[in-house]
């Protein structure tokens, strides 16, 4: 399963709900305001770091750049993907779920 999160984790409980339902081996892709969850040292960074043990984290590069988040501000292990990588992630997983 690929989970796609597009909401700021500081504005809604969307990310937390996604983390609570993601299973081992799933992938989580952060897009739009969802990429704010990838910032190192924030109030949700611990939850993301903890979840890294069971799921993989990806964040859409163009959305990261648009928001002025420097690459060195990203939590270790969160991989930045471009639009091609987005398509690859969707293709690699049998199902995907958008947490709107």
């Amino acid at each position: 399963m690929l989970h796609i999160v597009n909401k700021s984790p500081f504005q809604t409980s969307t990310l937390q709900s996604c983390l609570d339902h993601a299973l081992a081996g799933d992938a989580i892709l952060l897009i739009e305001d969802g990429v704010y969850a990838a910032i190192r040292g924030s109030a949700v960074a611990a939850a993301v770091t903890e979840a890294k043990g069971k799921v993989t984290f990806h964040a859409l590069g163009p959305d990261i750049a648009a928001r002025g988040i420097a690459p060195e501000k990203l939590i270790d292990g969160v991989t930045s993907v471009d639009y091609g990588g987005f398509v690859d992630l969707v293709a690699e997983h049998q199902t995907n779920q958008a947490w709107l």
């Binding site: 704010y36 163009p62 959305d63 750049a65 648009a66 928001r67 002025g68 988040i69």
Partner: peptide, 12 residues
Amino acid sequence: FQLAKGQDTSGI
């Protein structure tokens, strides 16, 4: 977040 520096929207 509105005031973050280095915002580059060319990709979106």
